[in-house]
Protein backbone atom coordinates (compact mmCIF):
# COMPACT_ATOMS: atom_id res chain seq x y z
CA UNK A 1 0.00 0.00 0.00
CA UNK A 2 1.33 3.38 -0.95
CA UNK A 3 0.66 6.00 1.70
CA UNK A 4 3.83 8.03 1.47
CA UNK A 5 2.15 11.39 1.39
CA UNK A 6 0.63 10.78 4.81
CA UNK A 7 4.02 11.48 6.31
CA UNK A 8 4.22 14.93 4.77
CA UNK A 9 3.51 17.63 7.33
CA UNK A 10 0.64 19.97 6.52
CA UNK A 11 2.14 23.20 5.19
CA UNK A 12 -0.96 25.34 5.43
CA UNK A 13 -0.64 28.67 7.17
CA UNK A 14 -3.98 30.11 8.09
CA UNK A 15 -4.08 33.86 8.63
CA UNK A 16 -7.46 34.24 10.22
CA UNK A 17 -10.55 35.83 8.80
CA UNK A 18 -8.72 37.54 5.93
CA UNK A 19 -8.43 34.16 4.31
CA UNK A 20 -12.09 33.35 4.64
CA UNK A 21 -13.17 34.47 1.18
CA UNK A 22 -10.12 32.88 -0.40
CA UNK A 23 -10.77 29.58 1.37
CA UNK A 24 -14.42 29.61 0.41
CA UNK A 25 -13.34 30.16 -3.19
CA UNK A 26 -10.91 27.23 -3.03
CA UNK A 27 -13.69 25.11 -1.58
CA UNK A 28 -16.10 26.29 -4.28
CA UNK A 29 -13.68 25.27 -7.02
CA UNK A 30 -13.07 21.84 -5.52
CA UNK A 31 -16.80 21.29 -5.11
CA UNK A 32 -17.40 22.40 -8.68
CA UNK A 33 -14.81 19.99 -10.02
CA UNK A 34 -16.05 17.08 -7.88
CA UNK A 35 -19.66 17.66 -8.83
CA UNK A 36 -18.74 18.16 -12.49
CA UNK A 37 -16.87 14.86 -12.54
CA UNK A 38 -19.67 13.00 -10.79
CA UNK A 39 -22.05 14.36 -13.40
CA UNK A 40 -19.69 13.30 -16.19
CA UNK A 41 -19.66 9.76 -14.86
CA UNK A 42 -23.42 9.72 -14.82
CA UNK A 43 -23.76 11.19 -18.30
CA UNK A 44 -21.22 8.69 -19.58
CA UNK A 45 -23.32 5.82 -18.28
CA UNK A 46 -26.31 7.36 -20.08
CA UNK A 47 -24.36 7.48 -23.33
CA UNK A 48 -24.33 11.26 -23.57
CA UNK A 49 -20.55 11.32 -23.22
CA UNK A 50 -18.57 8.81 -25.26
CA UNK A 51 -14.98 8.02 -26.10
CA UNK A 52 -12.39 8.13 -23.35
CA UNK A 53 -13.35 9.88 -20.12
CA UNK A 54 -10.81 10.32 -17.33
CA UNK A 55 -12.15 11.65 -14.06
CA UNK A 56 -10.17 13.98 -11.78
CA UNK A 57 -11.96 12.89 -8.62
CA UNK A 58 -9.48 12.83 -5.74
CA UNK A 59 -7.04 15.28 -7.32
CA UNK A 60 -9.15 18.45 -7.03
CA UNK A 61 -6.88 20.16 -4.51
CA UNK A 62 -4.17 20.44 -7.13
CA UNK A 63 -6.06 22.25 -9.89
CA UNK A 64 -7.78 24.51 -7.37
CA UNK A 65 -4.58 25.27 -5.46
CA UNK A 66 -2.36 26.00 -8.47
CA UNK A 67 -4.57 28.38 -10.44
CA UNK A 68 -4.83 30.95 -7.66
CA UNK A 69 -1.26 32.06 -8.37
CA UNK A 70 -1.74 32.57 -12.10
CA UNK A 71 -2.54 35.70 -14.07
CA UNK A 72 -4.45 36.29 -17.28
CA UNK A 73 -1.26 36.47 -19.36
CA UNK A 74 -0.07 33.06 -18.16
CA UNK A 75 -0.48 29.80 -20.04
CA UNK A 76 -1.78 26.48 -18.76
CA UNK A 77 -1.08 23.19 -20.53
CA UNK A 78 -2.24 19.88 -19.23
CA UNK A 79 -2.86 16.20 -19.84
CA UNK A 80 -6.01 14.33 -20.81
CA UNK A 81 -7.42 14.34 -17.24
CA UNK A 82 -8.09 17.98 -17.87
CA UNK A 83 -11.59 19.01 -16.73
CA UNK A 84 -10.43 20.06 -13.28
CA UNK A 85 -7.72 22.36 -14.60
CA UNK A 86 -10.15 23.86 -17.10
CA UNK A 87 -12.74 24.68 -14.46
CA UNK A 88 -10.20 26.01 -11.98
CA UNK A 89 -8.73 28.24 -14.69
CA UNK A 90 -12.17 29.75 -15.06
CA UNK A 91 -13.33 28.21 -18.33
CA UNK A 92 -17.06 28.33 -18.88
CA UNK A 93 -18.59 25.29 -17.18
CA UNK A 94 -21.34 25.05 -19.77
CA UNK A 95 -18.93 25.02 -22.68
CA UNK A 96 -16.58 22.50 -21.06
CA UNK A 97 -19.48 20.13 -20.47
CA UNK A 98 -20.87 20.73 -23.97
CA UNK A 99 -17.49 19.74 -25.38
CA UNK A 100 -17.73 16.42 -23.55
CA UNK A 101 -21.17 15.99 -25.05
CA UNK A 102 -19.67 16.66 -28.50
CA UNK A 103 -21.94 19.61 -29.13
CA UNK A 104 -21.46 22.68 -31.33
CA UNK A 105 -21.43 24.89 -28.24
CA UNK A 106 -18.42 23.05 -26.81
CA UNK A 107 -15.17 24.99 -26.53
CA UNK A 108 -13.74 23.01 -29.45
CA UNK A 109 -17.10 22.79 -31.26
CA UNK A 110 -17.32 19.14 -30.29
CA UNK A 111 -14.16 18.24 -32.23
CA UNK A 112 -11.90 17.70 -29.25
CA UNK A 113 -13.89 15.96 -26.55
CA UNK A 114 -12.93 15.24 -22.96
CA UNK A 115 -9.21 14.91 -23.57
CA UNK A 116 -8.83 18.13 -25.57
CA UNK A 117 -10.28 21.10 -23.71
CA UNK A 118 -8.97 24.44 -25.00
CA UNK A 119 -9.71 28.09 -24.34
CA UNK A 120 -6.96 30.09 -25.99
CA UNK A 121 -8.46 33.39 -24.83
CA UNK A 122 -7.82 32.26 -21.26
CA UNK A 123 -4.37 30.90 -22.04
CA UNK A 124 -5.68 27.37 -21.58
CA UNK A 125 -3.73 25.60 -24.31
CA UNK A 126 -5.13 22.19 -24.05
CA UNK A 127 -5.60 18.90 -22.65
CA UNK A 128 -3.25 16.59 -24.51
CA UNK A 129 -3.50 12.88 -24.84
CA UNK A 130 -0.08 11.57 -25.79
CA UNK A 131 1.54 11.06 -22.42
CA UNK A 132 4.25 13.70 -21.96
CA UNK A 133 3.65 15.24 -25.38
CA UNK A 134 2.41 18.48 -23.85
CA UNK A 135 5.71 19.28 -22.13
CA UNK A 136 7.53 20.71 -25.18
CA UNK A 137 4.46 22.75 -26.10
CA UNK A 138 4.54 24.39 -22.68
CA UNK A 139 8.23 25.15 -23.10
CA UNK A 140 7.40 26.95 -26.34
CA UNK A 141 4.68 29.00 -24.68
CA UNK A 142 7.13 29.94 -21.93
CA UNK A 143 9.68 30.81 -24.60
CA UNK A 144 7.16 33.16 -26.23
CA UNK A 145 6.55 34.87 -22.86
CA UNK A 146 10.28 35.34 -22.46
CA UNK A 147 10.85 36.42 -26.09
CA UNK A 148 8.07 39.00 -26.01
CA UNK A 149 8.72 40.08 -22.42
CA UNK A 150 5.07 39.74 -21.44
CA UNK A 151 5.88 38.86 -17.83
CA UNK A 152 3.75 35.75 -18.25
CA UNK A 153 4.72 32.21 -17.40
CA UNK A 154 3.57 28.75 -18.44
CA UNK A 155 2.46 25.95 -16.14
CA UNK A 156 2.47 22.40 -17.39
CA UNK A 157 0.69 19.55 -15.63
CA UNK A 158 1.75 15.97 -16.20
CA UNK A 159 1.51 12.67 -14.41
CA UNK A 160 3.95 10.13 -13.05
CA UNK A 161 3.57 8.16 -16.30
CA UNK A 162 5.03 11.04 -18.32
CA UNK A 163 8.34 11.04 -16.49
CA UNK A 164 9.45 7.93 -18.35
CA UNK A 165 9.06 9.68 -21.70
CA UNK A 166 12.13 11.20 -23.30
CA UNK A 167 10.48 14.59 -23.78
CA UNK A 168 10.14 14.97 -20.02
CA UNK A 169 13.90 15.01 -19.67
CA UNK A 170 14.46 16.97 -22.87
CA UNK A 171 12.03 19.67 -21.83
CA UNK A 172 13.56 20.08 -18.39
CA UNK A 173 16.96 20.38 -20.03
CA UNK A 174 15.78 22.96 -22.57
CA UNK A 175 13.88 24.97 -19.96
CA UNK A 176 16.92 25.00 -17.72
CA UNK A 177 19.49 26.04 -20.33
CA UNK A 178 17.18 28.77 -21.65
CA UNK A 179 15.92 29.89 -18.21
CA UNK A 180 12.34 29.56 -19.39
CA UNK A 181 9.53 30.89 -17.17
CA UNK A 182 7.97 27.46 -16.79
CA UNK A 183 6.49 25.63 -13.82
CA UNK A 184 6.61 21.85 -14.09
CA UNK A 185 3.75 20.50 -12.02
CA UNK A 186 3.80 16.75 -11.51
CA UNK A 187 0.57 15.18 -10.31
CA UNK A 188 1.95 11.92 -9.00
CA UNK A 189 -1.12 9.74 -8.47
CA UNK A 190 1.12 6.68 -8.17
CA UNK A 191 -0.22 4.87 -11.22
CA UNK A 192 0.41 5.16 -14.94
CA UNK A 193 -2.93 3.78 -16.04
CA UNK A 194 -2.92 0.41 -14.26
CA UNK A 195 0.76 0.09 -13.55
CA UNK A 196 2.12 1.27 -10.23
CA UNK A 197 4.88 3.88 -10.50
CA UNK A 198 7.06 1.78 -8.20
CA UNK A 199 7.08 -0.91 -10.91
CA UNK A 200 8.08 1.44 -13.72
CA UNK A 201 10.42 3.89 -12.07
CA UNK A 202 14.01 3.20 -11.11
CA UNK A 203 14.92 5.01 -7.94
CA UNK A 204 11.49 4.95 -6.34
CA UNK A 205 8.29 6.87 -6.81
CA UNK A 206 9.64 10.26 -5.73
CA UNK A 207 10.34 12.04 -8.99
CA UNK A 208 11.38 15.53 -7.89
CA UNK A 209 15.08 14.68 -7.35
CA UNK A 210 15.38 14.25 -11.12
CA UNK A 211 14.66 17.95 -11.57
CA UNK A 212 17.63 18.73 -9.37
CA UNK A 213 19.90 16.93 -11.80
CA UNK A 214 18.92 19.56 -14.39
CA UNK A 215 19.57 22.35 -11.92
CA UNK A 216 15.87 22.99 -11.41
CA UNK A 217 14.72 23.76 -7.88
CA UNK A 218 12.08 21.25 -6.87
CA UNK A 219 9.65 20.68 -4.03
CA UNK A 220 7.47 17.76 -3.02
CA UNK A 221 4.15 18.47 -1.39
CA UNK A 222 0.95 16.80 -0.27
CA UNK A 223 -1.41 17.07 -3.20
CA UNK A 224 -4.41 16.34 -1.00
CA UNK A 225 -3.85 19.61 0.87
CA UNK A 226 -5.13 22.53 -1.19
CA UNK A 227 -3.38 25.10 0.99
CA UNK A 228 -0.05 23.32 0.64
CA UNK A 229 -0.55 23.31 -3.13
CA UNK A 230 -1.47 26.99 -3.15
CA UNK A 231 1.48 27.95 -1.00
CA UNK A 232 4.09 25.93 -2.89
CA UNK A 233 2.80 27.18 -6.23
CA UNK A 234 2.78 30.76 -5.01
CA UNK A 235 6.42 30.50 -3.95
CA UNK A 236 7.52 28.84 -7.18
CA UNK A 237 5.60 31.24 -9.40
CA UNK A 238 7.05 34.23 -7.57
CA UNK A 239 10.56 32.98 -8.26
CA UNK A 240 9.78 32.23 -11.89
CA UNK A 241 8.35 35.71 -12.40
CA UNK A 242 11.49 37.13 -10.79
CA UNK A 243 13.48 35.55 -13.63
CA UNK A 244 14.87 32.57 -11.76
CA UNK A 245 14.00 30.15 -14.57
CA UNK A 246 11.96 26.97 -14.35
CA UNK A 247 10.76 25.38 -11.08
CA UNK A 248 9.36 21.95 -10.35
CA UNK A 249 6.66 20.81 -7.94
CA UNK A 250 5.70 17.21 -7.28
CA UNK A 251 2.36 16.69 -5.55
CA UNK A 252 1.46 13.24 -4.29
CA UNK A 253 -2.17 12.56 -4.98
CA UNK A 254 -4.59 9.77 -5.84
CA UNK A 255 -7.46 9.26 -8.23
CA UNK A 256 -10.36 7.67 -6.46
CA UNK A 257 -11.75 6.09 -9.63
CA UNK A 258 -10.08 4.00 -12.32
CA UNK A 259 -7.86 5.44 -15.02
CA UNK A 260 -10.85 5.91 -17.31
CA UNK A 261 -14.46 4.80 -17.29
CA UNK A 262 -13.31 1.49 -18.76
CA UNK A 263 -11.10 0.72 -15.76
CA UNK A 264 -12.44 -0.96 -12.60
CA UNK A 265 -9.02 -0.44 -10.97
CA UNK A 266 -8.57 -4.04 -9.80
CA UNK A 267 -4.83 -3.49 -9.52
CA UNK A 268 -5.23 -1.47 -6.29
CA UNK A 269 -6.11 -2.98 -2.95
CA UNK A 270 -8.99 -1.79 -0.80
CA UNK A 271 -6.81 -0.73 2.10
CA UNK A 272 -4.86 1.60 -0.16
CA UNK A 273 -7.99 3.14 -1.62
CA UNK A 274 -9.55 3.51 1.84
CA UNK A 275 -6.45 5.24 3.09
CA UNK A 276 -6.55 7.82 0.32
CA UNK A 277 -10.33 8.24 0.59
CA UNK A 278 -9.75 9.14 4.22
CA UNK A 279 -7.62 12.04 2.99
CA UNK A 280 -10.25 13.35 0.58
CA UNK A 281 -9.69 17.12 0.28
CA UNK A 282 -13.43 17.61 -0.15
CA UNK A 283 -13.76 16.33 3.43
CA UNK A 284 -10.58 17.50 5.13
CA UNK A 285 -10.64 21.06 3.84
CA UNK A 286 -14.19 21.95 4.93
CA UNK A 287 -13.53 20.19 8.23
CA UNK A 288 -10.50 22.38 8.79
CA UNK A 289 -12.57 25.47 8.03
CA UNK A 290 -15.22 24.41 10.52
CA UNK A 291 -12.67 23.43 13.17
CA UNK A 292 -10.96 26.80 12.90
CA UNK A 293 -14.27 28.60 12.66
CA UNK A 294 -13.41 30.03 9.26
CA UNK A 295 -16.84 29.09 7.96
CA UNK A 296 -20.15 27.88 9.21
CA UNK A 297 -21.82 24.68 8.06
CA UNK A 298 -24.45 26.85 6.39
CA UNK A 299 -21.86 28.81 4.43
CA UNK A 300 -20.27 25.60 3.22
CA UNK A 301 -23.65 24.23 2.24
CA UNK A 302 -24.33 27.35 0.18
CA UNK A 303 -21.05 26.82 -1.67
CA UNK A 304 -21.89 23.17 -2.37
CA UNK A 305 -25.35 24.10 -3.57
CA UNK A 306 -24.01 26.73 -5.97
CA UNK A 307 -21.55 24.19 -7.43
CA UNK A 308 -24.31 21.59 -7.82
CA UNK A 309 -26.55 24.13 -9.53
CA UNK A 310 -23.79 25.24 -11.90
CA UNK A 311 -23.15 21.65 -12.96
CA UNK A 312 -26.85 20.88 -13.35
CA UNK A 313 -27.16 23.94 -15.60
CA UNK A 314 -24.16 22.78 -17.62
CA UNK A 315 -25.74 19.38 -18.20
CA UNK A 316 -28.99 21.02 -19.24
CA UNK A 317 -27.13 23.44 -21.52
CA UNK A 318 -25.29 20.53 -23.13
CA UNK A 319 -28.38 18.41 -23.63
CA UNK A 320 -30.14 21.33 -25.29
CA UNK A 321 -27.18 22.27 -27.49
CA UNK A 322 -27.14 21.25 -31.15
CA UNK A 323 -24.55 18.89 -32.61
CA UNK A 324 -21.99 20.44 -34.94
CA UNK A 325 -23.12 20.91 -38.54
CA UNK A 326 -21.75 18.27 -40.89
CA UNK A 327 -19.88 21.03 -42.71
CA UNK A 328 -17.76 21.47 -39.57
CA UNK A 329 -15.93 18.30 -40.57
CA UNK A 330 -13.92 20.38 -43.01
CA UNK A 331 -13.40 23.60 -41.06
CA UNK A 332 -10.45 24.38 -38.78
CA UNK A 333 -8.08 22.07 -40.67
CA UNK A 334 -6.07 25.03 -41.94
CA UNK A 335 -5.87 28.65 -40.82
Amino acid sequence: MNTRAAKAKPKAHVNGANDKQEFLELYRQMCLIRQFEEACGEQYSRGNIRGFLHLYIGQEAIAAGVMRSLRAEDYVVTHYRDHGHALARGLDTNRVMAELFGRATGLSKGKGGSMHIFDAAKGFMGGHAIVGGQLPLAAGLALACQYKGTGGIAVVFFGDGAVNQGVFHETMNLAAIWDLPLLFFLENNLYGMGTAAERTRAGGVDIYPIAGSYGIEAAMIDGMDVLAVREATGEAVKKIRAGEGPKFIEAKTYRFHGHSMADPARYRDHAELDYWLSRDPLKSFPKMMLDRELATAEELAVVRKSADDEVASAVKFSLESPPPAKSELFTDVYA
Binding site: Y75, V77, A120, M125, G133, L135, P136, L137, A138, A139, G140, L141, A142, L143, A144, C145, Y147, K148, A154, G166, V167, E170, T171, N173, L174, I177
Partner: peptide, 19 residues
Amino acid sequence: PISEATFIGAGVGAAAAGL
Protein backbone atom coordinates in the same frame (compact mmCIF):
# COMPACT_ATOMS: atom_id res chain seq x y z
CA PRO B 1 20.24 20.55 -27.78
CA ILE B 2 19.89 17.39 -29.90
CA SER B 3 16.25 17.02 -28.87
CA GLU B 4 14.20 17.18 -32.06
CA ALA B 5 10.89 16.34 -30.40
CA THR B 6 11.32 19.05 -27.82
CA PHE B 7 12.55 21.90 -29.96
CA ILE B 8 9.88 21.23 -32.56
CA GLY B 9 7.25 21.02 -29.82
CA ALA B 10 8.63 24.25 -28.38
CA GLY B 11 8.29 25.78 -31.82
CA VAL B 12 4.63 24.79 -31.85
CA GLY B 13 4.11 26.47 -28.47
CA ALA B 14 5.94 29.61 -29.55
CA ALA B 15 3.90 29.75 -32.76
CA ALA B 16 0.67 29.20 -30.85
CA ALA B 17 1.62 32.21 -28.72
CA GLY B 18 2.10 34.45 -31.74
CA LEU B 19 5.74 34.03 -32.76
